[in-house]
Amino acid sequence: MGSSTINVTLKVWRQKNAETKGEFETYPINNVSTDMSFLEALDTVNEQLLQQGKEPIAFDHDCREGICGMCGAMVDGIAHGPDKAVTLCQTHMRSFHNGDTIVVEPWRAKAFPIIKDLVTDRSAFDKIIASGGYVSVSTGGVPDANAILIPKKDADLAMDAAACIGCGACVASCPNASAMLFVSAKISHLSHLPQGQVERKERAKRMIQTMDDLGFGNCSNHRECEAVCPKEIKLENIATMNREFASSLF
């Protein structure tokens, strides 16, 4: 285990609401166990703030196991912090050093307006899914599950793409605030499966249209999204999506 304690300073973006201007506030915390998660470090600061009658830092989180996609912040300029392939809630203080000053900011993207402190509005993602990220089946009257055989390879590829947790790190890290990785993951998940074939063209067209309408930027191949994705969603999905989109035009 080798747990030890460190002293760090958190420099955190505080913003009362969408209308007011925000600014950084600095919070030193001492004797932080390196086994503590990053969100537990924020909890610690918040407990101290509350004791002083001050408002705690607002941040989104729920599962704290890296699966719900609710947490997320820029830590020293990197979405979800320094560790590769993990969410902020799974980042632990052992990834930092004694004496570090750690800068914490919300996702910044036109399509994700700030609500308060580190909390942003990511409902644009839901709107994209509502515009086509599904197979149009209603409950009941479907065939037996084994009536459709799916090669393991295809099921695995679909699963790789379906693992996206919708956290928005891809958008936050992209200089263009593009949602291509998110959208392509859904398109590619369904296009690898027979169930997704019927609506594939329509789906790509509608989801991409919605994405553009909501103010997400374009992809210009910076690859930042892939680098920060906590679920290691691959850039190839964007190529798949582009193919689907191109074919939808014919």
């Binding site: 599904y134 197979v135 089946v137 409950t139 009941g140 479907v142 065939p143 599950a145 459709i148 099921a155 679909a158 699963m159 379906a162 998940h189 369904l190 499966l193 169930q195 997704g196």
Partner: peptide, 8 residues
């Protein structure tokens, strides 16, 4: 039902 929805 889940398979029909595309659950991998």
């Amino acid at each position: 039902q889940c398979v029909a929805q595309g659950v991998p």
